[in-house]
Design a protein around this nucleic acid. Sequence first.
RNA 1: GGCGCGUUCGUCUAGCGGCUAGGACGUGGCCCUCUCAAGGCCAAAACACGGGUUCGAUUCCCGUACGCGCUACCA
Length: 479
Amino acid sequence: MTQQPRVRFAPSPTGYLHVGGLRTALYNYLFARRLGGTVILRIEDTDRSRFVEGAAENLASTLAWAGLHFDEGPGIGGDFGPYIQSQRSDIYTAHAHQLLEEGKAYRCFCTSEELEASRQKQIAEKRDPAYDRRCRALTPEEVQKRIEEGMPFTIRMKVPVVGQMHFHDLVRGEITVHFDAIDDQVLIKSDGFPTYHLANVVDDHLMGITHVIRGEEWLPSAPKHQLLYDFLGWEAPAFAHLPLLLNEDRTKLSKRQGDVAVEDYRNKGFLPTALVNFVALLGWNPGDDREMFTLAELEQAFSLERVSKAGAVFDIEKLRWFNAQYLRALPPAELAGHCGPWMRAAGFDTGDNTRTEAVVAAFASYLTLPSDIAAHLPFLTIAQVTLENAEDRLLLAGEDAQSVLKRFADLAETQAPWDAETVKALIKQVQADTGIKGKGLFMPLRLALTAEQHGPDLGMMAELLGRDTCVRRVRAQIT
RNA sequence: GGCGCGUUCGUCUAGCGGCUAGGACGUGGCCCUCUCAAGGCCAAAACACGGGUUCGAUUCCCGUACGCGCUACCA
């Protein structure tokens, strides 16, 4: 029987969407789409102390911005809800009590302070910090007495004391762990909420999750989860632990060393297509030399078999390259849409769509981010050209330069129509009339017109400036 | 410290016993062009180390080193 895969992305709403989270969400999404499966968004908000208002909504909208759309989840619906863990408390409690009754879990009355003290002592004695399982030995009478006294308690999983277990990881293969390395994990906290371990196992089972695709930081606790499935008499889903995203110094990608929030990249003008394409290739490759992928193409090409094992450094330079590629491939109207805010901030009036689009099209190949457009606008926004550079002034003062400027101004005065092509023809005429060509012909004009030595096609620049401005600026440089 | 995972150019990676170790970003050069950007071409640049196994190891096994992760009533 081949069942359609059901996968989930299960972030905790503690703020923004981390780029590593985006990558995890993406791989889940691609895996499911490729196989015609279902993608579920589940909010893991069992830690009330870390809850951030609005974070869940922000997560969802950022994911949507990236183009990832879920089949089930909060605000989407589905037959396995609710999809917010804080609304599923009784379900976790019921399963924890079942484990209690079956002798697979026990109540622990130790306080956080006691546990911390014990931990410190163990560290001081150079022993491995681990819960000493003192409450595991409590008699039923003692337990009953403490409950009646109203002592708060947690519920801990009764991990076998000896032996070892295996589990299979789709990325890493067979993994063996000895039970003595596994603590008696807390399942239900003293506030009544479940820990990640219990909630994730219960939900994954109840929601019919077939494949758990998550970050490598979860690898060490996978055996606990496997054990929980066994305790509950459930078949565990397949596991796939993805390699981590790293800082330049190869530590786990974190704030402090650059932007880690998807929103940061979004706000800077990175396109979702570029970010998704880039992040898809961090830990996965198609097996051939392709590297430009749309989401739809990724859906076709993705497979867990080609996910690599080692962590990947988040190389912002390559992301920038991807962004430049996608940016310049945009239709002018869309490019103008992205650049608009920056252009207005730079004093350019974007009221005329045709003109705005012509400007961004002229500079498309110069842009890595939409904000880069601002640096190219001064020639359009300044009142007149003033050459700061002595070298430039010298260049314009030359005899040849002056005759080029004069001839151009004379011819331009009556030129109509005025567009890139006709201006170029006009420059050709200047060349024929003055015998000056190449750099000596273009540079004086470029400087007089734009105040810059470098830039796009001069004919295009002249068109954007308009005939009258061109004539005025060129005449202004004639001595 | 313990446990787990990992290790091919600076970075992302291909490679699944025999290759001049391939591609991409970045870097350098050349070409194109009035110039710059883009684009094209070329170049420099890697199998962590030590043992095995094998006719032959980047590839398989073991060890070492290094890195990362986990080691919470956080996820």
